[in-house]
């Protein structure tokens, strides 16, 4: 079984690159403005987006951008589409906000809407909800982007019922957004007619660079 990457989106701080093409957005120093601009640019039309934490916003923008302009969601079944993600900082960006809300005994007001995002796999849940994907899920944490780790876990998931997957790195820490989200499918003649990238560590490292 040959696995290939049929689309991807790389986001590093304020730069968005979709399948090799840079998306031009107004220069923003505040990450939340950058996310709002990207939301408008990709015409996401999904009001729940504004309730999400930074990690989920980053993941949703990157996955929506990778999915835009191709028929990945049409040609693959929702129930056999897995979502496999990894990062370094887990949900620490939001963890710190929740911790702040309980540090002071006299101003002790934890927010349930914040607390629910203090798990890294919530970004997987948000992707699953938006695109109605009910396949397998896995969120791994590692020191740094690890192409081989992502490939290993993608492969063992395809060894099961999985036929397609949204995979990648989605990290948000101390105001820095860093993600590479890509779509994985099984090579077939019809897909191979379009532009595709073989799924291997060298190719992933090149996309992440």
């Amino acid at each position: 079984m040959e696995l290939i990457i049929t689309s991807y989106c790389r986001i590093k701080n304020n730069r968005i690159v979709v399948k090799g093409v840079e998306v031009t957005l107004p220069k923003q120093d505040v990450p939340s403005y950058f996310f709002a601009d990207a939301y408008k640019h990709f015409e996401m039309n999904y009001p729940k987006f504004h309730k999400m934490d930074n990690l989920s916003k980053l993941g949703l923008i990157a996955s929506d951008a990778a999915l835009k302009g191709n028929d990945f969601l049409q040609r693959n079944k929702a129930e056999t589409t897995a979502i496999i993600m990894a990062n370094k900082a887990s949900s620490l960006d939001t963890d710190r906000i929740h911790q702040q809300s309980i540090n002071d005994k006299d101003h002790y007001l934890p927010s349930p809407a914040t607390f629910v995002y203090t798990l890294p796999n919530i970004v997987i849940g948000e992707m699953a909800i938006k695109h109605k994907l009910t396949g397998e899920n896995l969120f791994c944490i590692c020191d740094a982007f690890d192409a081989q780790l992502l490939i290993d876990h993608t492969q063992i998931t395809f060894d099961q019922e999985t036929k397609s997957a949204i995979c990648g790195w989605v990290d948000y820490d101390n105001g820095n957004a860093d993600s590479l989200i890509y779509l994985v499918e099984i090579a077939s003649d019809s897909i191979k007619n379009t532009n595709f990238i073989p799924l291997n560590a060298a190719a992933l490292d090149q996309l992440y660079k």
């Binding site: 887990s90 798990l119 890294p120 796999n121 919530i122 997987i124 899920n137 896995l138 969120f139 791994c140 944490i141 590692c142 020191d143 780790l149 290993d152 876990h153 492969q155 063992i156 998931t157 060894d159 099961q160």
Partner: peptide
Amino acid sequence: NKPLVISNACISGLLAIITAQRLIKAGQ
């Protein structure tokens, strides 16, 4: 080997056991 961390809310533990089974089956 570098340890692998799985953090997938309340299913993390059982998901880790399944992942272990799959990695071994794959010969890793």
